[in-house]
């Protein structure tokens, strides 16, 4: 039993590796926040394309459907590899795509963020679409009958309601995205799991990884509670609305 405890909860290893693991976790947080924000915007754009009813936008709608189907259906790890392994070697691409160095970050950093955004954009598009579909048609009709244009109806009536209903699934996907940042370590980014693994290799002890897990929980547990709270409040409001 002691051996078990030592393998996973060796306080000395944890203390010695704390700085490095925390640095890795900071990378995890950066990747999560940046690709989370980008994927939210991208996903919303995809959902709006996909939900468009106008026949003029049919090509856009079909493209959005194809995109979502493809990137929901292939592993994130594969997307990471496809991007980082070949983009630098395609000379026709502009420099900022082949070797992005925005804000002084290395290209692998942006390749990782691109892969997360591409894949999670597809997931979030489906979440947003469900939210848009959940807004009753009567809302649009009421707004249009007041003389509001399609655009203003979307902006002032449909989107605010859609976004409210999708906050819980959005947060759930954000938790999933945060955990999936560990996959981009294959391109060489040292995030929390990679950092823990390197220490594991040096010490033959997993306590640094346990430490990384604890750091994840510090963020994901409160997020999960927020989702629960939000759902409760929302359900109560809905029950009241139907009563």
């Amino acid at each position: 039993m002691d051996i078990f405890f030592e393998q996973y909860f060796d306080l000395t290893v944890m203390r010695d590796s704390f700085g490095k693991v925390l640095l890795g976790f900071w990378m995890t947080i950066q990747l999560s926040l940046i690709s989370g924000a980008l994927a939210t915007v991208w996903g919303l754009m995809l959902a709006l394309c996909r939900s468009s009813r106008s026949w003029v936008l049919t090509p856009l709608r079909l493209a959005a459907i194809a995109y979502i189907d493809v990137f929901r259906g292939i592993p994130l790890l594969l997307v990471v590899l496809l991007i980082s392994g070949s983009l630098p070697f395609i000379p026709v691409l502009p420099e900022w795509v082949r070797a992005p160095t925005l804000f002084g970050q290395p290209d692998i950093y942006w390749f990782g963020i691109a892969a997360l955004t591409i894949t999670y954009g597809a997931y979030l598009a489906e979440v947003f679409r469900a939210g848009l579909d959940a807004v009753p048609a009567g809302q649009t009709e009421a707004a249009r009958s007041l003389g509001m244009s399609h655009r203003r109806t979307l902006r002032h009536v449909v989107l605010p309601q859609a976004v409210r209903t999708v906050v819980p699934p959005l947060l759930n996907d954000f938790i999933a995205l945060m955990k999936d940042t560990s996959l981009v370590q294959v391109v060489g980014i040292v995030e929390v799991v990679r950092a823990g693994r390197e220490i594991q290799g040096e010490t033959f002890n997993s306590s640094a990884l346990t430490l990384g897990a604890l750091m994840f929980l510090v963020v994901t547990l409160p997020l999960a509670r927020i989702v629960d709270r939000y759902l409760n409040v929302h359900q109560r409001a809905r029950r009241r609305a139907l009563a």
């Binding site: 809302q139 009709e141 009421a142 249009r144 009958s145 007041l146 009536v157 605010p160 309601q161 609305a241």
Partner: peptide, 19 residues
């Protein structure tokens, strides 16, 4: 849109904006 402004409509299901 301009013509719809001149025609008010009230629906069976009210359709107030709940937010």
């Amino acid at each position: 849109d301009a013509v719809r402004r001149r025609i008010g409509m009230v629906f069976q299901q009210f359709n107030l904006f709940p937010h």
